[in-house]
Write a protein that binds this DNA or RNA. Structure first.
Lengths: 408, 408
DNA sequence: AGCTTTTTTCTCGACAGTCGAGAAATTAGA
DNA sequence: TCTAATTTCTCGACTGTCGAGAAAAAAGCT
């Protein structure tokens, strides 16, 4: 069923367009906004006047005043229009970042994630959020959005972690981490989904004509995958399929998730460890493997140790077969590999390519582009900002009465 | 990048809404359209007046005149506003159907698809299309759309068959089947994609609140899969992943496509034949297997023949593992099984469930709904109409100047 | 038959939004 | 001080949606 349209929705859409142009380029003049959005100059006047009245954007006083003619007035987001907190959960740490509405990082700190069940975990996060606002003396009510990322599977609409390596299928509802005084919306996304979104945005920025779809593959203790697709004239579509726990080998090695034969049970760090030491594949996987441990195996492999080489090669093959299935089911697309596992790319590459090579998709469409992108943490943060601000902007514009009221 | 909006687009969107309501319910009164679309009565007046002026819809004279009050005037599509030809290509036949703008079937005939290369094949279709318009004495120029379906992989935007069981990776461009005098747009879609689209539309009609996503699995000589997803307030999103040639078993049985270990090489009719007769899995697959042949094997299996039973069970397992991968990469969704292979469902079922059961997605989300829907041909045709008319309507509305001009 | 009731369609004016054109503003340079 | 250049701002025309109520037309009632 299609949705009906109206003139008000037109204004909403075009306001969003103006804000997103401001996000992308930061601090724009009237004419520049007009060029970037394709809207008529008069429309820009009207929209910016509205947004200014609603205290969402402001004219920045400092103007470079270069060239002749009437000096341009630059618009930018009002910094204290609202705040955003990103919460990046990794296996041992939780990182909190406080960002203002203009997108500048105000504060960042990390805390150990601690032991205990989901309740203790949520309490830790709750405390972390409190600390974040108190350190910068910010009103809880002015935090518009808390954007959480984690490994595992997020509920498609609620901020609930449906499955995670640590808590299994015990659900974690991050909305419960906000106590009284907070009005923020909470969103939760898979970490690699954010990476895919960030990579897509980078592609768009550098060369607009790039392929509008890509996959991000994160290698580490667990295996993450995100897909980002730019659809014509709309908000990009990003998703995080359950790649790490897709079936690789029926009745195969035991996985941390309890099932058998998952991709992760062959390509995760613990699986590489298991294979290198010829431990039976049905032994319970190690909870956590220090990277140094895998580094040692990699060193042995690079010195010619057959068993170590085979461990990496089999891990690569599991990834390659998995990627071939991804391409079969989602269409051909380039793959960007990231995460701590990229340091073993030399040992994995052959297996990955072997796994891909023999399948129908690859024979038909050619080997997909495989690009290593090492700096995962900054991609995750970038992905947080992209996604979070697009939601915040949408929400702010959506609540039109606020704009009307502020106009008084 | 978002697209800019304008008042004209609003009218386009709302006109499309009116036309789609007319498609769904056929022959509606002013008030009914208003109810169905949520638009104000005055807006309906304006839009219907426009569409009538543009000779797209008309008031149907015959009114049931039941109840008191001013009698309602019913609107419906003008039948001769344009025509649509669907071309359904199967392994041995090509079926042509001529449909008028109101959606009523005017003519239908089938022809053998013949032998020879792609050029001869296109010539056959070209002749078939000519025959279709001549039999009904319809002007070639008034055919708005030719909607073609086939097994295989269609190009995402062009009407080009990128890979097919018959022609392999030799491309077939159906646009070339239209000679001079034709102005029709040509679209090509995978057959099972249309089935998925039709099933989704049926779900929407019967119970609006059903899950907004489903997969259609077509079992036969080859294996087809379509996914249909209803996104909030938009046109449904349908796709046809390359499921049949997704990797099932590394270095496995030889497939018709030339690769090894595809799902089809275990679950296609020729694969069941191969397995039942214990032919080595690397023998060249049979070009075509009569259903009677598989029926015989099924009869033997039902009488307790172990080898025949195993052939079906393994086919089922290949499907089950494949479906588990589908659910991993596309999220949990119900599966509708169709095609000639559904007559062996009793023999396949156990294997399918076995393949699904052990994977992480199914352990987490439960066994997906598996529903058998036998009548594939009518689903294919339904899918053609759904998709084709949504495109035709969009095009007609999109060309606004035609509406203005006709208004003179 | 004539009046009332009921239901539907049609019309009008208010309001929101976009656009093009051109006026107003403001600076650099002659 | 004047002119050219450049940007912002404003005005009127146009398109579109909406609510309210007028107009139309059939059924029922007296």
């Amino acid at each position: 069923m299609l949705a009906k349209s109206s003139t008000e929705l037109v204004r909403q859409q075009n306001s969003a367009l103006v804000l997103s142009a401001l996000r992308r380029h930061g601090r724009l003049a009237h004419t520049e906004i007009s060029d970037a959005t394709g809207l008529a100059s008069a429309t820009i006047s009207s929209i910016t006047a509205d947004l200014e009245r609603a205290r969402i954007i402001e004219k920045s006083e400092q103007q470079a005043t270069v060239g002749r003619g009437r000096p341009r007035v630059l618009f930018s987001q009002r910094r204290n229009c609202g705040y955003l907190i990103t919460v990046i959960i990794s296996s041992d740490l939780i990182q909190y970042s406080l960002v203002d509405y203009a997108g500048t990082l105000l504060d960042r700190f990390s805390e150990p994630r601690g032991e205990g069940g989901t309740a203790a975990f949520l309490a830790t996060i709750s405390a972390g959020l409190e600390r974040a606002v108190e350190r910068s003396r910010i009103d809880r009510g002015s935090v518009l959005l808390v954007s959480v990322s984690s490994k595992g599977i997020a509920h498609p609409s609620e901020p609930v972690l449906v499955w995670s390596p640590v808590f299994g299928s015990q659900p974690v509802d991050f909305a419960a981490a906000l106590k009284d005084g907070w009005h923020a919306k909470v969103i939760l996304n898979n970490e690699t989904l954010l990476v895919a979104g960030a990579l897509l945005e980078r592609e768009v920025k550098t060369q607009g004509g790039g392929e509008p779809v890509l996959a991000a593959l994160s290698l580490g203790h667990s295996i993450g995958l995100g897909i980002a697709r730019r659809v014509a004239g709309g908000v990009p579509e990003i998703s995080a399929p359950n790649f790490g726990h897709m079936l690789h080998m029926p009745s195969g090695g035991l996985c941390r998730c309890g099932a058998r034969g998952c991709v992760e049970a062959y390509a995760g760090f613990y699986a590489i460890l298991r294979a290198a030491f010829e431990v039976p594949v049905d032994t319970i996987p190690a909870k956590f493997v220090p990277v140094a441990e895998i580094d040692k195996i990699a060193a042995r492999a690079r010195q010619g140790n057959r068993m170590a080489q085979l461990a990496f090669r089999n891990a690569g093959a599991a990834l390659g077969y998995g990627l071939s299935r991804l391409l079969s089911l989602h269409g051909h697309m380039p793959v960007f590999i990231t995460g701590p596992g990229t340091r073993y790319q030399d040992l994995l590459q052959a297996g990955i390519e072997e796994g891909l090579a023999q399948t129908h998709v690859v024979r038909l469409g050619g080997m997909p582009g495989l690009t290593v992108v090492p700096d995962e943490p900054s991609l995750v943060f970038e992905g947080h900002l992209n996604l979070a601000f697009s939601i915040v902007d949408q929400d702010i514009i959506g609540s039109r009465q606020s704009m009307q009221a502020a106009g008084e």
